[in-house]
């Protein structure tokens, strides 16, 4: 592992007209590092995530990504085709609503296999075998490989979306409230799964969540956002156990204890 950041973000701002989406966000993300972005609804965390993942064009600032050949590349200067290729292969994006990240009317196996074909997989048997292997890893029975995700529960759909994203062995995965709409028992299973996969695959990930327990469980480092700005950041357990800013103290003290 080379000792260089995977992603370098400098002064990213996004304005919607006069309204602020996010303002002056800078950070480095290192290989194998999981960063949580927390804050309440409307704090700009999803806007920031979408800017980072090139799904939105930032108003100002730069984002550089270290591609597999070791070069730092400015994402804004990459061609559209190259950026798409990156998103299909080296990156993953897990949406809160699985229907946004899956194709609901093709089979589970095809949902996973499709990303493999995008990186040049052509042998049907191999693709099906790899897809089956990934369904097993995300705890979906192999007997469901030919079913459409429409027939899956919310938790299963979310696991399928994760399999679809990870099958190409991406180096960076973006997740937007990955456990958002799920029951707590289903959440626990998914969190455990994500935690294991991130560790085993040495993934870097940026996870947007409003759930501080999710941030504690999954992330090494976190950023707290309010009104579009990062107001506090640092080691996850330090920010949660010794919050400095008034807003972070409010967030932490608002967690219900069970």
């Amino acid at each position: 592992m080379t000792d260089a950041p995977l992603l370098k973000v400098r002064d990213i701002s996004k304005f919607y007209g006069a309204r602020i989406g996010c303002r002056n966000v800078s950070f480095d993300l290192w290989p194998g590092e999981v960063l949580a972005i927390v804050g309440e609804s409307g704090s700009g965390k999803t806007t920031l995530l979408n800017c980072l993942a090139t799904r939105l064009m930032p108003t100002s600032g730069t984002i550089e990504y270290r591609t597999r050949d070791g070069q730092m590349r400015d994402l804004a200067r990459m061609g559209e085709a190259e950026r798409r290729f990156l998103m299909r292969t080296d990156w993953g994006f897990v949406h809160q609503n699985p229907a946004d990240g899956l194709r609901m009317t093709v089979s589970a196996g095809a949902n996973v296999g499709e990303r493999l074909m995008a990186v040049g997989g052509r042998h049907y048997g191999n693709i099906r075998e790899t897809a089956g292997d990934w369904l097993r890893r995300v705890e979906i029975g192999i007997d469901r490989i030919d079913d459409q995700p429409r027939a899956f529960s919310g938790g299963m759909r979310q696991r399928l979306q994760i399999a679809r994203n990870l099958v190409t062995a991406p180096r960076l995965v973006f997740m937007d409230e990955p456990t958002g709409g799920l029951d707590v028992s289903v959440q626990a299973r998914l969190l455990d799964l994500v935690r294991g996969l991130v560790h085993d695959l040495g993934l870097s990930a940026i996870i947007v969540t409003h759930d501080l327990a999710v941030a504690r469980l999954l992330s090494h480092r976190m950023m707290v956002m309010k009104d579009g700005q990062v107001i506090e950041q640092g080691l996850t357990d330090r920010v949660l156990d010794d919050p400095r800013e008034a807003y972070t103290q409010l967030l932490v003290s608002s967690i219900l204890q069970v």
Partner: peptide, 9 residues
């Protein structure tokens, strides 16, 4: 002890 562990600033 938490400061020494880096858990408290």
């Amino acid at each position: 002890l938490k400061m020494v562990y880096g858990n408290y600033g």
